[in-house]
Amino acid sequence: MMPDLGRYATEVISAYVVSIVIILAIVALTLWQARKTKARLEEVEKRSVRRG
C-alpha cells in the first residue's frame, strides 16, 4: 500500500506528519477552547437567570 518514496522518504513523511500534527493541534485547541467557553457562559447565564 505504501508508495515508493525513494530516497526522499524521510522528508516527505516528516512534512506530512508535521503538518497533520499542527492541523490537529489547532483544531483540538479551538474545539477545547470553544467547549470551555460555552460551558462557562452557560454557567454564568444560569446564575444570572436565577438572580433574576
Binding site: 479551538t30 474545539l31 477552547q33 470553544a34 467557553t37 460555552k38 462557562r40 457562559l41 454564568v44 444570572s48
Partner: peptide, 23 residues
C-alpha cells in the same frame, strides 16, 4: 470552519464578560 468556531467562541466569551460585569 475554524474561524467560524473561534468567532462563536469569542462572541460567547464577550457575552460572558458582560454578564460577569453586570453581576
Amino acid at each position: 470552519t475554524l474561524v467560524l468556531v473561534r468567532t462563536r467562541m469569542e462572541i460567547r466569551a464577550r457575552r460572558m464578560k458582560a454578564l460577569i460585569a453586570r453581576e
